[in-house]
Design a protein around this nucleic acid. Structure first.
Length: 161
DNA sequence: GCCAACGTTGGC
DNA sequence: GCCAACGTTGGC
């Protein structure tokens, strides 16, 4: 598809590999997992307002020995209420949310492939990625937008360009 | 395990 | 509606 017709947006989504690694996602039925547990309004709003089926996703492993990009995924849609917020036994339980006024949403993410690890140090070497959200000091947001330019630079790194 | 940075809470 | 206190995130 010509780049001019490519209306995808791009995202970076963090997951702890202990919970949902790229390998785990790839081994799920249809390689698709529900992106549960988002408990930040900005991240929720990205899911609710901006994500479209087919958008590209950089699959990030966080809170681990070597944080970085470990795979490529796509937004598979099916935006819905995140059931984990109502379950007191769930680590993502939110006592302030209620079924008649749910706070949190989930959607499906389909893993496409594992990549070689693109670690933070390597990403920081790329001047074109200097403004990438995930590389900014103090960034904690688990879902961040990725620009088309950043996406292309990362594709290039993965292809050895 | 540390701790800087950030988002949320709640008293006022 | 301000803002100090608190809890959490996540790289290091």
């Amino acid at each position: 598809m010509p780049a001019s017709q490519d209306t995808r947006r791009f995202w970076l989504m963090k997951n702890e590999p202990d919970e949902y690694s790229i390998d785990h996602a790839l081994s799920a039925p249809d390689a698709t997992i529900a992106w549960n547990g988002v408990r930040n309004y900005q991240a929720r709003n990205f899911m609710r307002d901006d994500m479209q089926v087919g958008d590209g996703v950089l699959y990030w492993h966080s809170s681990c020995a070597e944080p970085g990009i470990y795979g490529i995924a796509r937004i598979a849609g099916n935006l819905r209420v995140d059931p984990s917020q109502f379950d007191p036994a769930d680590p993502y339980y939110d006592p302030k949310s209620s079924p008649d006024k749910p706070r949190w949403l989930t959607l499906d993410v389909q893993a496409l492939r594992k990549t070689r690890p693109l670690l933070i140090a390597e990403l920081r070497e790329q001047p074109a990625l200097a403004h990438m959200r995930v590389l900014q000091k103090g960034n904690r947001l688990s879902i961040t937008p990725v620009s088309t330019e950043e996406w292309q630079v990362i594709e290039g790194l993965l292809q050895g360009r």
